[in-house]
Design a protein around this nucleic acid. Structure first.
Lengths: 216, 216
DNA sequence: AAAAATTTTTAGATTAGTCTAAATTTTTAA
DNA sequence: TTAAAAATTTAGACTAATCTAAAAATTTTT
């Protein structure tokens, strides 16, 4: 088994690796709130365990074993988030920190039974896909609202920023997962948008539109 | 907050402290599968934090703060065991190790919501009382079957041995929590007993009778 | 109450994860 | 294509928790 800390490194490398091939030491340090020197030490350890491919100064990628571990942590994180929201009535902006702890509970049996108990959900409360027990993960073809044109509509299906501040803002604007929206107007000066949700019309900044994902 | 390890020490001291006033270093070492020298180091740390009363060579007791922490761990352990059995259909002999991990999840909010979700159970699957959110714990007036006389009857309400082997044996004999039993006969040679459960009659050893607790 | 046995503590190492500061390598830019 | 900047690694140290072996205190036995 891997330690709590090793699991966090693998998860961070997985998330950073989605956007670019080789992940750098400083990026990992920033993601984990630690220092580059500490990251280097851990990368050596993970490379010894054959969980990552690492050559000095060149950044890292996960091996398939490393990816398997990362996906199992992500599966646990997202299933626990679903549990917290759907069964214990937490709000979507309150679950992240608790799930960060729960994701390290090791029992595979536990997580599979939890999955069944909840009816095998496919997406977590933020719209992120939940890997299945074999580590298969659906790829989500979502677009930021900022990139769809005027008069196009779609269903809110995910967020890029998971911070409580952003999620609370979305709640206040009624921009929650599952809502159908339509882009009514795009301001050419500051790229802010006017969109309609149900029968309301709301004004959102470019930054918000960048972090709000819809399925067309 | 306290570390995972500190919490385990406090819990062990609490459990050992039920039977005798001052708990010794070796007893703690045995309970935690560690060495006496390691225990001494930790006792100094816990004493510095004012979680235990400790004088060299004299053993320890919990301070009221230490007891509060221990009871909160025990509350979490027992609520998670209840969840695993009642919601996820684990058997009573399968839940201990998973609960040992879950009990260290720190969120108070989580555990209180879990408690409400399950309808505020009073006893865990082994019949042990669950402390409430203020740390109040019911004291259980139970007797081992070995100490009740012939022809007395009562309801199985707890166990002294929580090992999977013992619990599986009880399952096989239908001696589970809530069953009403009656002591029919006591063998004066080896102190084994014949007891009736529902409409069956079963023969149990003195050792089993010692570890099976009933409410009269 | 002294000797023997047991329990507990101290001393000194070890491992995992972290840090700062200095050195090295790679990348960028003049 | 060399100098400057940025990224990364190494060196050396620290903390938490553990260990073994030896020393000290306590308890038991005679």
């Amino acid at each position: 088994m891997n330690t709590f800390t090793e699991e966090n490194y693998l998860k961070a490398i997985y998330h950073l690796g989605i956007r670019e091939e080789n992940v750098g030491t400083n990026q990992i340090a920033a993601a984990l709130n630690t220092k580059a020197a500490s990251v280097t030490d851990m990368l050596k350890k993970l490379a010894d365990k054959e969980l990552i491919n690492y050559t000095r100064y060149q950044g890292v990628t996960l091996t398939s074993e490393g990816e398997k571990v990362a996906l199992s942590i992500i599966r646990k994180h997202r299933l626990w988030e679903y549990f917290l929201v759907e069964k214990l009535n937490f709000k979507w902006d309150e679950v992240h920190d608790v799930a960060e702890e729960l994701e390290h509970i090791s029992s595979q049996e536990l997580i599979d039974r939890l999955d069944d108990f909840m009816g095998n959900p496919k997406y977590d409360p933020h719209g992120d896909p939940i890997p299945d027990s074999k580590g298969q993960i659906r790829s989500h073809e979502l677009k930021p609202v900022s990139l769809v044109g005027v008069n196009r509509s779609g269903v809110i299906s995910g967020v890029r920023d998971h911070s409580p501040a952003f999620l609370q803002y979305l709640d206040k604007m009624c921009l929650t997962i599952g809502k159908k929206i339509k882009v009514e107007e795009i301001n050419t000066y500051d790229h802010s948008l006017i969109i309609s949700v149900e029968d309301k019309t709301v004004h959102i900044s470019r930054e918000v539109a960048n972090n709000l994902l819809i399925a067309l």
